[in-house]
Design a protein around this nucleic acid. Structure first.
Lengths: 151, 151
DNA sequence: TACTATTCATATCGATATAGTAGGAATTAA
DNA sequence: TTAATTCCTACTATATCGATATGAATAGTA
């Protein structure tokens, strides 16, 4: 069973924690790490990346921590995944340089186009999933797990 | 501009060469390498993988080489990409073990499901593209390039 | 002010994956 | 028998992944 890169997985988990947390109070990297079982120095790095991407805000110093920069319903999985893939801001459909693919050889041109289609298909899946919906699914699954214990 | 792993790119180029070549006469790895500018020892390895996947057939010895195992119209890009990604035979939609996702934690379960959706979206793009159509596009682009020289 | 908790920045590390290279055994047409 | 070819296995070099390490900068609080 394949999966997202662990860095992406951790980042998403972190934002889920932030979304579940009171947005007016910053949540510390250490707390996120503990709750999700992530090495705390590692999640710090990831959160810094998310900050640069404008997904989260931070407060330094004692009682500092991280908060979401936007409402969970406004953050898509595409936003999260792209911000953590080094792919700074995938230009959705701003294919400004159409036909300007400077590959020598016909097959390179064709394969570039197909790669773009694959990427777009992936983005289409990720764009329609909001952080909000992740949190809701999370809630639902957790409560199901609770019920199981009562059997 | 991202792209397929070079190994996958080379493999696809090799099968395009095979598709353009008389299928009753084997084409040598060395010839493919030369035409597509691929290190010849490397394309050998890749072709062996394609053979194990049943995409190509080989003839050993002098005058040996490779031929396609099926008609180009019957080979999809999904077949090619999957056979070269180590993912031996992705089970298309044989989701026999639905609900058997053995991840601890609700977010892992959710993310596994989403990853599967992303994979399926990619496969859907690749499944509808045949090697035949790649060859046709290739032909078309080459002839366009010819026209350009006449301007 | 001093102390402490936190983010922020940068370097390093081990393991794994990617992109090859190398040597030679096995096979087969001529 | 010879030359050309696939086939098999091992090796190398570089990059990426998944962290860990060290410590500076910042800010709340006693």
């Amino acid at each position: 069973m394949n999966r997202f890169p662990i860095k992406v997985t951790y980042g998403i988990k972190a934002t889920i924690e932030l979304a579940r947390h009171d947005r007016s109070v910053p949540l510390q990297a250490k707390a996120i790490a503990k709750r999700q079982g992530i090495p705390s120095r590692f999640i710090e790095q990831i959160l810094q990346g998310l900050k640069r991407a404008g997904i989260v805000r931070s407060l330094r110093g004692a009682q500092g921590g991280y908060t979401l920069a936007q409402d969970p319903s406004q953050i898509s999985l595409a936003d999260l995944v792209n911000s953590m893939n080094g792919n700074e801001a995938i230009p959705s459909t701003t294919n400004s340089s159409a036909g300007h693919i400077e590959n020598r050889g016909a097959s390179n041109t064709i394969l570039s186009t197909i790669w773009a289609q694959v990427q777009e298909a992936e983005q289409a899946v990720l764009r329609v999933i909001s952080l909000q919906s992740l949190v809701e699914q999370h809630q639902k699954l957790e409560s199901q797990r609770c019920l199981m214990y009562h059997i």
